[in-house]
Design a protein around this nucleic acid. Structure first.
Lengths: 396, 396
DNA sequence: CGACTTTCTCCTTTCACAGGACAAAGGGCG
DNA sequence: CGCCCTTTGTCCTGTGAAAGGAGAAAGTCG
């Protein structure tokens, strides 16, 4: 079955599709209010979109005191696939054209097993979603990987935690398998786009989105657009020095932020503390699970464990210190904290806030909200769907 | 005398003006090659520009084997004023429409004397330039101030080193005095624009421009545009922590980069070293001048003084460490080092490069030039002229 | 049932633009 | 010197984009 064969023919059509995506069904009159075109021209463009099948007119809206309007909406059968590959798990979701999640799967996975194995898993998850009746096929897919990406080609480059992925043609391969257009980006950038589209960063044009998972990264949005940098490695803040002559890091340096705080570092520190008898709470969890993760630390912190709280606070201090520097440099309008460790919640947030508000200048922090992301694990897949829809809803 | 009464009426005219500004005189045919318009449409727009007087046709070019072409150029009488207010001196220059400097004055000044006194000085310098026959009047002026600016209004906000300037309507006041449009920006941003227009950053779209003068700042260019941040304080890297629990800074924190390295810090450190008898070279200069400046340290370094070299190297290390973090975060395609301390030259540059190449990941540094600015004190005034010409050469 | 609103369609006019024909102005060559 | 070629610039016409008004369609309210 061939799907979404058409693309918007001009900027007006692209704008209309975007409005319908972000604002849901609209009458022609409502669209006209937002688009600065005459009614006649608007009608022409809407008609052309109707002809292509990208949008449909279904039903009449209730009258608002005059003639009833036709509901114009994006084709209800459009389906996007959002894939968010993390270091230790993968999220796959199906959305409609409005980027609402219709179905979402999460499975553990090890990205180090390489692209072939991971692809197999992703494809089987996508097949499962399709089999459940949520989609007959996909009109496009967005995929995020935990490393730098040469964006135009959709190819990972020199990814530190993904041996075997370097140069693998993710975009081309996935496009072949799924039979639809695919866009690839860094997972952190997708999280930022997700929070921008449907989360705390709605209508914010300049913000930072710090993702603390197995590693640490930062999505940078400038003027509403993701900044990817000269080689696609922008936002790679995990290897900024947080502690002079600090702990050795896998990258060869010492004192990198990631060596002192991240999901992996936190688990390791907690395990050490448990083994050294510093915390009964953590020791109990270690005995129960055999190994500790960031979630165990989060649970221990909720239970009031002082050691867990101390680890979180210390990590937050280091993170906050780095973020303080970024805030001085970039002067964002908002800082979003997200990723796997959002479970650490307000202990972490408080530590970060303290450092940033203390170290950055008042002009930069005066009106600066520092908040947790509100989409959780959905941010990445929504961002992925957003990525491909931005691509498909732009003039061919 | 009324000047430059017209503005481009549409985007085509704006594009043409910009091409003529950056590429010098051109024939209609040459313009057509760069502008993706039909010859007929191009001729219409050029004719309209000729009518407004913004451009003139003077003389015929030599034949290239066919009919001779008319030289189209920007009106030769157009004059822009570029003003660069530093902490301790002020630069004022006149440029033609192609942003070539026709005359340039530099005078010592203390920005802390407040806007009224500084304005008086700037206006008298502008008058002197005008009196020398370089300009009959100004069609626009750009001005840079050493602190954050609310860009749309052209008003400094909370400038740390400029007491008395907070909220002073620089744009409006100067526009009134000069009788022409004025744009205001941070001095560091103007330096970045200058190097982008006529210096080392030509044709680079994403780069950082670190200005080390009395203080330290960083111009951020994203996609060819200066990034000013949510409150106009983007690039304010002088108060990023470079040394944990380091020296106290005027901002109230400890270990700020600016407290450890900047023109002011360097002079202070050199003076201390001289007084403690660590360097005969510096002590001699101190005795001769009564006080030391960064230039003295530069001269001592050139003379081979180990203490001076050590100070520069140490400062470069701190600066390089901060820049390394910014490089990881922002992934620029180029880093430009400029400002008053460029006299420190390659000793400084080497220290910075060492830190950046050592601390940032290979993907970000692999293809990253770190170079000195090539315009020196002209960068700021050229950037100022560029700022106002960008404004005037955009559709009204 | 008539007055008024809101939504949508159709028609005419205006404008932007491309592209070809053509004029102007030169060079090179026999 | 005449002829043909190239380059540059101008003019004209056709086409499509777009605005804006008239009016039809479909409703509400008194």
């Amino acid at each position: 079955m061939r799907r979404m064969t058409a693309r918007p023919a001009n900027a007006h059509q692209a704008r209309l599709l975007t409005l319908l995506r972000d604002g849901g069904p609209n009458s022609r009159a409502q669209l006209g209010d937002q688009v600065d075109l005459s009614r006649s021209k608007l009608a022409v463009e809407v008609d052309r979109l109707l002809e292509t099948g990208l949008v449909v007119a279904d039903g009449l809206a209730a009258s608002r005191g005059g003639r009833r309007s036709h509901n114009i909406r994006l084709a209800p059968g459009l389906r996007f696939l959002g894939v968010d590959i993390g270091a230790t798990s993968v999220d796959v979701a199906v959305t409609n054209a409005e980027l609402e999640i219709l179905g979402h799967l999460n499975q553990p996975m090890d990205v180090r097993e390489g692209p072939v194995a991971v692809f197999e898993q992703v494809l089987s998850m996508a097949a499962k979603l399709r089999a459940s009746g949520l989609a007959e096929g996909f009109d496009g897919a967005g995929i995020g990987v935990p490393g730098p990406v040469r964006f135009p080609e959709g190819v990972p480059v020199a990814p530190p935690i993904m041996p075997g992925w370097d140069g693998f043609p993710v975009r081309e391969a996935l496009s072949q398998e799924l039979g639809c257009p695919v866009m690839v980006d860094n997972d952190v950038n997708l999280m930022a786009m997700g929070e921008q589209h449907a989360g705390v960063a709605r209508s914010v044009d300049d913000f930072l989105c710090v993702k603390i998972g197995t590693g640490i990264g930062c999505g940078i949005v400038v003027g509403g657009q993701v900044h990817r940098g000269a080689t696609g490695s922008a936002g790679d803040i995990g290897h900024i020095q947080a502690v002079p002559d600090g702990r050795p890091c896998a990258c060869g340096n010492r004192g990198c932020l990631e060596a002192h705080f991240s999901g992996a570092a936190l688990a390791r520190d907690a395990q050490e503390a448990a083994q050294q008898g510093q915390s009964e709470e953590l020791a109990g969890r270690l005995a129960a699970h055999g190994t500790l993760t960031a979630s165990d630390v989060a649970a221990a912190a909720v239970a009031g464990d002082a050691t867990a709280l101390g680890l979180i606070r210390e990590g937050g201090n280091h993170t906050g210190q780095v973020i303080a520097g970024l805030v001085s440099f970039f002067n964002p309008g908002l800082v979003v904290i997200g990723g796997g460790v959002t479970g650490l919640g307000h202990t972490l947030l408080a530590a970060i806030r303290t450092q940033v508000y203390r170290q950055s200048l008042p002009l930069a922090t005066g009106n600066l909200p520092i908040v947790l992301g509100e989409l959780g694990p959905s941010a990445g897949v929504i961002g992925a769907a957003r990525l491909i829809s931005d691509h498909l809803f732009s003039p061919a």
